[in-house]
Simulated scan of single mutants.
Amino acid sequence: MKKLLQLFILCLGITVSAQIKAPQPSPSAKVEQMVGLSTVTLDYSRPAMRGRTIFGDLVPFGEIWRTGANENTVISFSDDAKIDGKMLKAGKYAIYTIPNKDSWDVMFYKSTNNWGNPQNWDDNMVALKVKAEVVKIPMEMQSFTILIDEITTDGANLNFLWENTVAYIKFTVPTDEKTMASIDKVMNGPGAADYYAAAAYYHDAGKDLNKAWDWITKATEANPDAYWMQRKKSLIAADMGKKDKAIEAAKKSLAAAEKTGNKDYVKMNKDSLKEWGAK
C-alpha cells in the first residue's frame, strides 16, 4: 500500500509538471517596420472569424475594444510621431479602439500591461485620440490583421483589417529633421567626442601616436574642461616623450576633475604628475 501511494504521488507530480503545447486560438504576431529613419513596432494577437459576425456583433459598435485578443495590442514609436496633425511622443502605447460603422476612434493608452480593457478606464492615460477612416473591402479577412503600409520616406498608414472592414489612420515621423541633423553633423566635421574616440583607440591599440596627438588636441580644444580628454592627452604626450605637454594636460585634467568631484581622475593625475616629476 505504501509503495502504491508513493507511485501515485510520483505520477501526480509528473502530470502536474508536464506542459501540453498546443496552438493558440489567437496567435501572437510581431511587426517591425522602418518608416524613414524611425522604427515602428507592433505586438498583438490575431483572433479569427470562425464563422462569426464581427463588427456590430462580436465587437459591438460604440464600445471600447481591446483591438485584438489576449494581452494589450502594443505599438512602439522610436521617435515622436504626428497623427491627424497631433503629436504623439516617442514611446510604447496600448491601442484601444471604438469601432463604428463609418469611423473608428483610435486611442493610444499609456498603460500597456492590461489583459483586455483596463479594469478602470482612465482618460488621463489616453496620450492621443484620433478618428480612423473606414473602408469596406470586397473579400473577408479571416484573421484580425494590423498592417503598416503605404510607406513613404516620412510616414505611413496604420491599417486595422478584419471581416470586410479596413480602418486606417495616417502618421508621419520626423525624417527630414533627423536627416538634416545628420547632414549638418557630417558636413560640419567630427565633434570633440569623435576626435577623442579616434585618439583613444589609436593610443590604446598602439597605432600612430602622431595622429592620436592631432586628434586629441582637436578634442581638447573643442572641450577643454573634459578631464577624461585631458587625461588621455597627457598619456599620449607621455608615450611620445613630450613630458612638458604631458604635465600640462595632467594639471588641466586634475583641476577639472577636482572641480567635478571625480576622485578616481584626481588620484590618477596626481600619481602621474608625481611620476613625471611635476612641480
Rank of each mutant, 00 (worst) to 15 (best):
K2R: 12
K3D: 13
K3S: 14
L5V: 12
L12E: 06
T15Q: 12
Q19M: 13
E32C: 03
G36E: 11
L42F: 11
Y44V: 02
S45T: 04
S45V: 02
R46Y: 08
A48N: 12
M49D: 09
T53H: 10
D57E: 15
P60C: 07
T67Y: 09
A69V: 00
N70V: 08
E71R: 11
I75N: 02
S76D: 11
K82Y: 03
K86P: 04
K89N: 04
Y93T: 01
Y96F: 14
I98V: 14
N100W: 03
W104D: 02
V106Y: 01
S111M: 10
S111N: 14
N113Q: 13
P118G: 01
N120A: 08
D123K: 13
N124T: 11
V126I: 14
L128I: 06
V135P: 02
I137P: 04
P138I: 02
E140V: 10
L147M: 10
I151M: 07
A156I: 03
N159A: 12
N159Y: 04
F160D: 03
V166N: 11
Y168L: 07
I169E: 08
T172C: 00
V173R: 03
P174K: 08
D176P: 00
D176K: 13
D176V: 10
E177S: 13
M180Q: 10
M180T: 05
K185M: 07
K185N: 04
M187E: 09
P190M: 11
P190I: 05
A193E: 13
D194R: 00
A198Q: 09
Y202V: 00
D214V: 11
I216G: 09
I216Y: 06
K218W: 08
K218P: 13
Y227V: 01
M229R: 08
Q230W: 07
R231D: 15
I236H: 05
K243D: 09
A249W: 06
L254T: 08
E258K: 14
T260I: 15
T260S: 15
K274C: 04
K279A: 15
